[in-house]
């Protein structure tokens, strides 16, 4: 097989450049394999994150030919043949070195999510939930926290200043998971609008496009959350109905 040409971004906060590596192609490889071979032979100190090599841990996120992807789930033969493979670090987060970025923004945001508050157990000591109750949440809980969606989201990718008041798609998935949980008793809608910037998302679906777990982030998490927020503050009918017929859930906005 012909040689692969890989153009890797190398550098840190003091600047960087593309370095081109030529390495023999091997059958059945994914991009992460190629990067590993470069590391083992040509550039031992190359910085790259990975763990499972099976698309399960979400460590090996990078941008391949300008698209956010998992390196371990991108087969080399899927990429245009004969063209160099361009690999850069996630753009939205500060660089540490080479392909490794500081993703602490996401962990900070995760820290602010008001936790799960279950209702009491049934009389027999169990929680009764049926398949139809858990199915919707299970989609959200597939998230491997690769933060590719956070990376591609233009709200913070192109506007650093929004990071202060915008949680991002991964977090919306987490909020949706909690808000739709049949056992949870917390109401995070106010927090979502006022502190987490749900209104900044303009549903342009790039997050959905890149999600390696194929979570329908926009359709199943963000839009339903937006609709729930409408219930809460833009729809007097729903608001009235809730006042009359149902007790509303507890509102807890204090982030821990």
């Amino acid at each position: 097989m012909a040689d692969l040409v890989v153009r890797l971004w190398r550098g840190d906060e003091n600047g960087g450049e593309f370095i081109e590596f030529k390495i023999p192609a091997q059958e059945g490889e994914v991009v992460l394999d190629v990067v590993h071979r470069i590391q083992a032979t040509l550039a031992p100190d190359l910085a790259v994150r990975w763990n499972c090599k099976a698309g399960k841990c979400g460590s090996c996120s990078a941008e391949i030919n300008g698209r956010p992807r998992l390196m371990c789930m991108t087969r080399v033969n899927q990429l245009p043949e004969g063209e160099p493979i361009v690999i850069t670090p996630l753009k939205t987060f500060p660089i540490i070195r080479d392909l490794v970025t500081d993703v602490s923004f996401n962990f900070e945001m995760l820290k602010k999510v008001p936790g799960f508050k279950p209702k009491p157990r049934e009389a027999d000591g169990t929680y009764r939930m049926y398949t139809e109750d858990v199915e919707r949440g299970q989609e959200f809980r597939k998230c491997i926290e690769c933060f590719l969606c956070q990376d591609v989201c233009h709200v913070i990718r192109d506007h650093e200043e929004n990071k202060e008041h915008y949680a991002g798609p991964r977090l919306f998935v987490r909020y949706a998971d909690l808000e739709m949980n049949p056992l949870d008793t917390n109401d995070r809608r106010q927090l979502l609008v006022e502190k987490m910037g749900l209104g900044y998302c303009n549903i342009t679906k790039c997050c959905t496009e890149v999600c390696p777990e194929h979570i329908h982030i926009t359709d199943n998490a963000i839009i339903p959350l937006k609709e729930r927020v409408v219930d809460d503050r833009y729809d007097p009918i729903a608001w009235l109905g809730k006042k009359i017929f149902r007790k509303s859930k507890k509102v807890e906005t204090d982030a821990k």
């Binding site: 009764r128 109750d133 858990v134 949980n181």
Partner: peptide
């Protein structure tokens, strides 16, 4: 395992909701 459920885990369910 039951405690995990109380902390938010969503396991697959039996027909009786367990």
């Amino acid at each position: 395992v039951n405690e995990l459920e109380e902390w938010g885990a969503l396991f697959d369910r039996t027909k009786d909701g367990l």
